[in-house]
């Protein structure tokens, strides 16, 4: 196989095709992995916003006592605060433009770490919200001593409750990791593969 001949033929080839028109410049949706992650995060933003609004009505729907209502409002405010902070971070990620004219290694590493950072932020927010919810559940059980759940809790041994807490944390961790992997991990994996191929000597 003569690569010089091939090169000459390659350079002689002049694929014609239609002229590129202004219409092609009007497309807004790009398809890089980072754009896909951004689009998914945008969807999630609306779901979470809906969830936060729904949470505001829970005290009215559940008929909480005054004491538990105060605890609920506190946890709700903390959840809103954390969510707002992380949403601001995601907004910066969403708006942050990328420079495709860097050399390939720099460009791909930028994509990889930007995506990884934001997926980790996403996981951190999920952990925080999940633990706040678990915290509220415990507060509910201790305050509402007369509730069915609290009475049930009293019948259980301390060891059993501790094991359950441990398992709950493990389940939250597993669900968060799996969800992040299922939702965003595939893009990270694909970009990481290109990084590894570039770095392989």
């Amino acid at each position: 196989m003569n690569f010089d001949d091939l090169k000459n033929e390659w350079n002689a080839e002049n694929p014609e095709g239609n002229n590129i028109s202004t219409d092609m410049l009007k497309i807004k949706q790009a398809h890089t992995p980072i754009d896909k992650i951004r689009a998914k995060m945008k969807h999630e933003f609306f779901y979470q916003l809906f969830f936060l609004v729904f949470m505001a009505f829970i005290p009215y729907l559940a008929g909480f006592s005054t004491a538990i209502n105060q605890v609920y409002l506190m946890t709700y405010a903390i959840t809103c605060g954390f969510t707002a902070y992380y949403f601001f971070k995601f907004y910066l990620f969403y708006k942050n433009s990328y420079d495709m004219s860097m050399d390939s290694r720099k460009n791909i590493l930028w994509f990889y770490y930007e995506m990884k950072l934001n997926v980790e932020l996403y996981k951190a927010l999920t952990y925080i919200v999940a633990f706040i919810a678990v915290g509220f559940l415990f507060a509910y059980l201790f305050i509402e001593q007369a509730s069915v759940f609290a009475r049930l809790l009293k019948k259980l041994s301390t060891a059993y409750i501790l094991i359950n807490c441990f398992v709950t944390i493990l389940v939250i961790g597993a669900i968060t990791e799996l969800w992040a992997w299922f939702y965003y991990g595939k893009y990270l994996k694909q970009v990481k593969k290109v990084v590894d191929e570039l770095d392989y000597e």
Binding site: H31, T32, P33, M100, S101, M102, D103, S104, N107, I108, F111, K186, Y187, Q190, V191, V194
Partner: peptide
């Protein structure tokens, strides 16, 4: 030169299918 970089960088991370 600039065009090669943008084109290749796009192709390198473009994943149409899963």
């Amino acid at each position: 030169t600039w065009m090669y970089r943008v084109c290749l960088n796009t192709a390198l991370i473009y994943f149409k299918k899963d």
